[in-house]
Simulated assay, not measured.
Amino acid sequence: MRGTIHVLNGPNLNLLGEREPAIYGHDTLADVEAMCRAEADAAGYALEFRQTNAEHEMVDWIQAARKDAAGIVINPAAFSYAAYPVLDALKLCDCPIVEVHISNIHRREAEWRSKSIMTQVVTGIVSGLGVHGYALAVRHIAEVRGRTK
């Protein structure tokens, strides 16, 4: 294995496939994990896939991954807008970080949804490509890390 890619999911994503399927689709978080695992396996990376509704748990996971992760894919969900401890933890990371949003946050009904505070510290963003954005983010990290090793 070449390292571990961490895929971290924020609040309410445990209900993916049930919650607002017109916006987030019918795929479940288990489906997303399978897609990410296939990408990571194909590139020779281990995958750590997690979801939490608790901000402190997300901070702990980021801190644990910050020095030895090949990369982090994070869908901060509602943490995007006011979770400054998550933002501060991401600032400490030495690896590529890709922020993923299933919906296009810039086209959502409320303006506040388009203003993710995480954007200022991540390497890149995938927004509006559905759950396939996760697989693209994992592939991107694998390709970037492959060029730097």
Rank of each mutant, 00 (worst) to 15 (best):
residue 56 H to L: 06
residue 48 E to N: 02
residue 31 D to W: 06
residue 143 E to R: 08
residue 131 V to E: 14
residue 110 A to D: 00
residue 22 A to Y: 00
residue 16 L to V: 15
residue 115 K to F: 14
residue 25 G to R: 07
residue 82 A to V: 10
residue 63 Q to P: 07
residue 94 D to I: 13
residue 108 R to C: 09
residue 29 L to A: 08
residue 7 V to L: 05
residue 106 H to L: 02
residue 67 K to V: 15
residue 43 A to E: 06
residue 38 A to F: 00
residue 11 P to Q: 10
residue 50 R to W: 03
residue 117 I to D: 05
residue 54 A to S: 13
residue 84 Y to Q: 02
residue 15 L to F: 14
residue 62 I to S: 10
residue 61 W to N: 00
residue 128 G to Y: 12
residue 93 C to E: 00
residue 75 N to V: 15
residue 99 E to K: 09
residue 64 A to G: 02
residue 24 Y to K: 09
residue 100 V to Y: 07
residue 25 G to C: 04
residue 57 E to G: 00
residue 147 R to L: 15
residue 101 H to I: 07
residue 87 L to M: 01
residue 76 P to G: 09
residue 60 D to W: 14
residue 138 V to H: 04
residue 138 V to T: 01
residue 55 E to G: 05
residue 143 E to M: 15
residue 11 P to V: 08
residue 80 S to A: 05
residue 41 D to W: 03
residue 26 H to P: 04
residue 28 T to M: 03
residue 79 F to D: 05
residue 145 R to L: 08
residue 72 I to E: 02
residue 71 G to T: 04
residue 91 K to N: 03
residue 100 V to N: 06
residue 64 A to I: 09
residue 123 T to L: 00
residue 108 R to I: 04
residue 115 K to M: 15
residue 141 I to D: 08
residue 125 I to N: 12
residue 81 Y to Q: 03
residue 124 G to C: 04
residue 31 D to S: 12
residue 60 D to E: 04
residue 101 H to W: 02
residue 6 H to K: 15
residue 125 I to L: 14
residue 47 L to W: 01
